[in-house]
Design a protein around this nucleic acid. Structure first.
Lengths: 342, 342
DNA sequence: CTGTTAGCGCATTCAT
DNA sequence: ATGAATGCGCTAACAG
């Protein structure tokens, strides 16, 4: 590693003070145009680059923000991250990404680790629904490090969030299944202590009630978002005496599992059973039997999350304010639920 | 943001020096067990956390490493990153992820930006095949910041790399297609200035030659790794007078595009045309018509890349050394190429 | 074993 | 408009 040039080096060369160099480089008004030009020129000539670590120590800002997600190998989270980067990058921030793999202890470790690294804020999608009871998390709140939830959020005073209208998305998907003639619609849910899953469940339920159909709690199964879990739950549903004629899943992955299981049972999609997922993962479109799903505009969600962070960090008034940004979902109707493609 | 406790705070409380506190906290041998215990206890009681930025400034190490990939929303890269994290995390490092979206200027900007953030090393998968001609990249090499390539690499003196044996993987896939009775095997390639694509091409070619088949350069098309590009190239292939009876693609995404296009043309897979991809993206397994592909053990690749970095960074002998780690690929034969599933 | 001193690179307050 | 001095928090060299 070659020794890097510092402001002292260029100060010595110009026979001035480091302070002056600093001022010149930071567009400080109290400096003559002549020296400013001179400094900037020589800085360039000497390949000067500001040492961000020193600046971070001095200013107390690291210009790093932490992003915590369950996993990055889902298109949804990867796209949210892309959106976050697009917005933060031009503002000089870097993004440190941490995965929890849905493990509670990893989520806590990530939080501690990010705080330790002096991040200027944390943007996260919750893995553990009981997060707010954790001591480390409580201390995070106490420290007033800007924290913003996206997608998987909880309603915590002072913590802003960016989500889509999950109720609306679920309602639309369920309504669509009803319009296709389905009468017994099952729901593959997830931990309803998390707002998104609760709201999707509520949207699903409301659509059924509004349509005058019977709501059957036995058709709701709570599982985590994995293909295998979707298969298992679907197996249970299919072996019921009065099996459902549609499945609305809160995840594309579990919807995929459902489809695999339904086929295994020799049933036809969408004729015997309709299926709809949630998130618009790319594979839902790729498949021969494309899957009906709800798009969450993840890139936009990421950008907005970053914007909320930038607002919080630039607004010095540390009054406890909470902002809730809600995007509109879009139902994408595809083969897995379209019975009469007349 | 609450004021954080520093070693001075705890020194004052114990009426000792900050230096002593530092020593106690860093397991410095020159200290009495008594004070060490005392310091550690009070540090815990006062919720002390080491300020990594200060340590970074002092030591010249940021404990951040940059990872540059074309994109994170492909399972392959996401998994490599997971592997990198698994290995680096326990060693106190954080990972800053940058995407290039295959854009040359973004790749350069990412490099500069990471250097500016004082990262301790850069792990990257190249997007721009002419990277080594770029001035910023040259200066990166001159600075001797540990740099390691994975997957998409170039042979540059002093730069280590971790890859799979792409030649072998491509050879195996092509050989398999030949064993299925295919005679005219097309190849959807990618920029062959990059080693991986060159080697896959060479493996493909060698398999054909070794089998005594005619090698036809016209059946090789160079495209980037996107579904739409795969479709377009396949369209060209299908409209040839003497169309191919198999397509070996250097990417699962272009293989998917090929499959879509082939179906559109009313041809049967694998009966009329066999298809094989590369990378073992999850969707290749999900599809009703599962896709034959080559697994690259991405997590293992990530772990090894991180290990090479850790070696380089811990080994002070800055002799120009170059390490090439090569993993073994695994051919996964699935429906898209299995003609007689007897 | 512990205290003193100094410096990593920068920005900022107080002089001038 | 510029210089001098100081501190962000930590560690390491040098004393003792």
């Amino acid at each position: 590693m070659t020794k890097k040039t510092t402001i002292y080096d260029i100060a010595r060369k110009l026979d001035i003070t480091a302070a002056t160099v600093s001022r010149a480089l930071n567009n400080n008004p109290k400096i003559s145009d002549a020296t400013r030009e001179l400094v900037i020129q020589t800085a360039k000539a000497m390949n000067y680059e500001q040492n961000k670590v020193a600046k971070a120590l001095k200013s107390g800002k690291s210009y790093n923000v932490g992003v915590i997600v369950p996993r990055i190998d889902s298109n949804f989270f990867a796209s949210v991250i892309t959106g976050i980067e697009e917005e933060l990058y031009p503002n000089g921030y870097h993004v440190i990404i941490c995965q929890t793999h849905d493990q509670e202890n990893l989520e806590i470790r990530n939080i501690n680790s990010l705080l330790n690294a002096q991040v200027d804020g944390i943007l996260m999608s919750i893995s553990n629904a009981k997060l707010e009871q954790n001591e480390s998390f409580k201390s995070l709140l106490r420290k007033r490090v800007p924290l913003i939830f996206f997608d998987r959020q909880k309603d915590i005073p002072g913590v802003s969030s960016v989500t889509i209208d999950d109720f609306k998305g679920a309602y639309a998907a369920t309504k669509h299944l009803i319009d296709q003639g389905c009468k017994r619609i099952a729901h593959l849910s997830n931990d309803r202590l998390l707002e998104i899953f609760k709201n999707r469940y509520l949207g699903y339920k409301q659509a059924i009630i509004d349509s005058g159909l019977e709501f059957d709690e036995n058709l709701v199964i709570e599982i985590s978002s994995r293909v295998a879990e979707g298969r298992k739950a679907t197996k249970t549903l299919l072996e019921m005496g009065n099996r459902p004629d549609a499945i609305f899943s809160t995840s594309d992955f579990t919807a995929l599992g459902a489809i695999q299981e339904i086929k295994e049972h020799g049933l036809k999609i969408p004729d015997d059973i309709c299926v709809a997922g949630f998130a618009n993962e790319p594979f839902t479109k790729f498949m021969e039997l494309s899957i009906t799903t709800v798009d969450q505009s993840p890139i936009e969600m990421g950008r907005l999350t970053a914007k909320v962070f930038l607002e919080e960090v630039s607004n010095p008034s540390r009054i406890m304010s909470q902002k809730k940004v809600i995007l509109s979902p879009e139902l994408l109707i595809r083969k897995s639920s379209l019975k009469h493609s007349s």
